[in-house]
Write a protein that binds this DNA or RNA. Sequence first.
DNA 1: TTGTATGCGTTATCAG
DNA 2: CTGATAACGCATACAA
Lengths: 360, 360
Amino acid sequence: MPEKFVNLKQLSECLGLSQTTVSRALNGFPEVSEKTRQRVLAAAAEFNYRPSPSATSLATGRTRVIGHVVPLSFHRMINPHFSDFMGGASEAYARAGYDMLIRVVREEEEESVYRDFARRNRVDGVVVHGPLVDEPRIPLLKSIGLPFVVHGRGGGEALDYSWLDVNSRGAFLRATEFLADLGHRRIALVNGLETMNFAHRRRQGYETGLAARGIDLDPALITSEDMVEPYGYRATLQFLALPQPPTAILFSSVLPAMGAVRALSEMGLRPGSDVSLLTFDDRLSFLQSGAASQSADIPFLTAMRSSIWQAGQRVAEMLIHQIESKSEDTVQELWEAELVVGRSTAPCKELSRSLAKEVS
Amino acid sequence: MPEKFVNLKQLSECLGLSQTTVSRALNGFPEVSEKTRQRVLAAAAEFNYRPSPSATSLATGRTRVIGHVVPLSFHRMINPHFSDFMGGASEAYARAGYDMLIRVVREEEEESVYRDFARRNRVDGVVVHGPLVDEPRIPLLKSIGLPFVVHGRGGGEALDYSWLDVNSRGAFLRATEFLADLGHRRIALVNGLETMNFAHRRRQGYETGLAARGIDLDPALITSEDMVEPYGYRATLQFLALPQPPTAILFSSVLPAMGAVRALSEMGLRPGSDVSLLTFDDRLSFLQSGAASQSADIPFLTAMRSSIWQAGQRVAEMLIHQIESKSEDTVQELWEAELVVGRSTAPCKELSRSLAKEVS
DNA sequence: TTGTATGCGTTATCAG
DNA sequence: CTGATAACGCATACAA
């Protein structure tokens, strides 16, 4: 039986009040008497009244919906990184009474989609994913006045908009130095697509780290691709087939790092003792144990860690705040990744050997 | 500069026509003259007219939005399986001009959320994810008349609603027999949560397969948990520590299967030659190589394969069709998983040994 | 083939 | 503190 329900008009008739008063009581306006408000609230609960989203939206211009626009070309963004981010965001939306709207678009449509979102109040704001080194969406969104928060940052210096990013450059600098300090001189980088700004920054951190330790850059030790598991597998096999293979490999994500583990395993090599692996780790949920066994055992992979789930939560909160406060203020957050030493890194064997030689 | 835009009224004034005629022309009604229609279409394009979703929705009761309700308790559903499904669905929505709405809810809210979705036209329909053996959402949705398609099936016999499922029972029956026919007698099962109907069915297939090959069921060889990587890792270590360890392990997902590979690798064992691994494989996108290297090399893991991405697409299409045709007809699709033999399965060594003994 | 008038369910403006 | 009344932007039954 489709449960009966009432609209505002019917509810106000039941109460012998005007729609105006009932609406005000429900929306917490101060000028309604406490007695009336209680009566209205009780009736609303009894009749299970819910306002119609489309009517509210038409009247107010606000929708309580946040948009996520996914270009078809980025469609690989529907991957574990993206979905963990969305998981965190959707949690924050739920808490604040918002819904998440996802729209997949062809690249050439993207601009007009944002314009329509703004003009026709399809959403109250949007999250910008995967900013490129040169990111056209940011000036566009600013010009049309649609509230947005960027997960990451665009390139360039004009960072006068709200964003949340992890310090990619710092993380990869630190990771590179860490490996160098273990004696590794041939350190490979399995990076993400360097059109993405985060990958660009990671590359910078890596290069700075090498320079800081007086290590020459070897282009043969760097790859840049979509961060999936088979990519790490292939890259690792290729590296190990080099005349002078790397003794350590740095990964932009656990996904290719897992591929590397598979490659090593097939070759009968062991992470850590044979080749050191260090990865950026977004704390993807499908790799976490339940709370039970989350205890103190040493993690398998040494990693620079930062939870992308939490980033999603925070970005959502920032955006909702921006929408509700209506302020033009921008907020920037730069998160530091945490170095967690696991069992996949070890001092460089070659170095130990050459040191031994020198001593003897 | 926030680009100016027009509403229907302004557009009709520019044209010297009534709103009605313009509306009809735009929506393809037959009674408008071709000449007028062309004029309207041209003007709409010139002024970049777009109807307001909230107004349209208020007037028609339809939203062109499909809802996906995610209970907080299932929140781990935001995992690679879920997101690949959503990737496929969102593609289909985009093609048909629909948007995807995601709402995370506390479990006790779920019923009222569906009711509100229906009554207040928040969405035109919903997709039901992860049906349980005893699934209350299905009768609820039927009773309130909100169009829905189930990804999977509920338990019981009354399957009088639209669903798309893979033949889990058949797939696990086949997988079990395949392993048994390789000589394995101790076959473990690393299953998903058996409150989920798909896991329940997989278990049935497994048991039927054992019975068909005259193998006794050993409860010590069965586990049932959330399908994440560390689960497969732990389960594998536990199995191998048994007095009589299994010689083959069957997994409900590649995620725990990857954990198993890691466990074997740490123990110095190799998949296939030492322990056979066979997994259900949803073709998760982050594990696929790009088209380039998708060529004929033998896959690493032997698997029962069925693309969850495609399932998402198809479910979305079914739901949209149901909504737009307004028919009460239900559609059921049962997809067969494909057995793809990789390098992680091999004849049982123990058996070979005992056969050798018998012969000598 | 086109136009008029009304409704969809709210919120907001302005009186009282 | 409360209540008419007018938007909000579109679709549609009914007229012409």
